[in-house]
């Protein structure tokens, strides 16, 4: 009985320690400022060069917070908030990016609690995959939920976007790691 309890407590501790030891939190200021700056840059960068519009900084920030916190609820909230703000500033129906980024935040946080996401290679793969996932979600929402008939997706363009997000994301993640607060 005692051995069973010890084993159970060890398993629990092991599971909790892995999950909790790697769970990171952020200062409230960083939680608010980083997404705000990302969205602001997303608005300003295309003014410098229209080609920079291909980078999705709000997505990169959503992924960063989701995999760092490893809480699907927190990931969902972060994705929804960033996506809704992006919708408000892009003239699109409010909820399009909100829904897509909610799902992305949830999925990234769920995946982050299962695999090691501190590795740059893992982060790169995650960014690439979730960028494509967001493109698919946006297509489904705009084409099938809102029934915009003339809407098309240039999949090659979305592939290029995923690669660009991957390339931009790695240094951005390293920069944002400095704001982490280990719990």
């Amino acid at each position: 009985m005692r051995e069973t309890l010890t084993l159970e407590s060890m398993v629990t501790r092991s599971y909790m320690s892995r999950r909790e030891a790697e769970q990171q939190s952020f200062h409230l200021l960083a939680t608010v400022l980083i997404p705000a700056v990302a969205i602001l840059l997303q608005v300003l960068l295309p003014r410098i060069s229209p080609r920079l519009a291909i980078v999705d900084l709000p997505l990169i920030v959503t992924l960063f917070f989701a995999v760092s916190r490893r809480s699907p609820i927190a990931g969902t909230i972060t994705g929804a908030a960033i996506g809704l703000l992006q919708d408000l500033l892009s003239g699109m129906p409010v909820g399009v990016n909100g829904m897509a980024k909610s799902v992305v935040g949830y999925a990234a946080a769920s995946l982050g609690s299962r695999i090691d996401v501190e590795n740059s290679a893992t982060r790169a793969v995650l960014t690439f995959g979730f960028s494509l996932m967001q493109s698919v979600l946006l297509y489904l929402i705009l084409r099938h939920l809102l029934e915009i008939h003339g809407f098309h997706v240039l999949w090659l363009h979305e592939l290029v976007r995923a690669v660009v997000n991957l390339l931009v994301g790695i240094p951005v993640y390293l920069l944002l790691d400095r704001w982490k607060r280990q719990e």
Partner: peptide, 14 residues
């Protein structure tokens, strides 16, 4: 013009 769209899917100016 002081701003552009926050998304690649729309072409909006502020």
């Amino acid at each position: 013009v002081i701003g552009a769209s926050a998304s690649d899917q729309s072409h909006i100016l502020t």
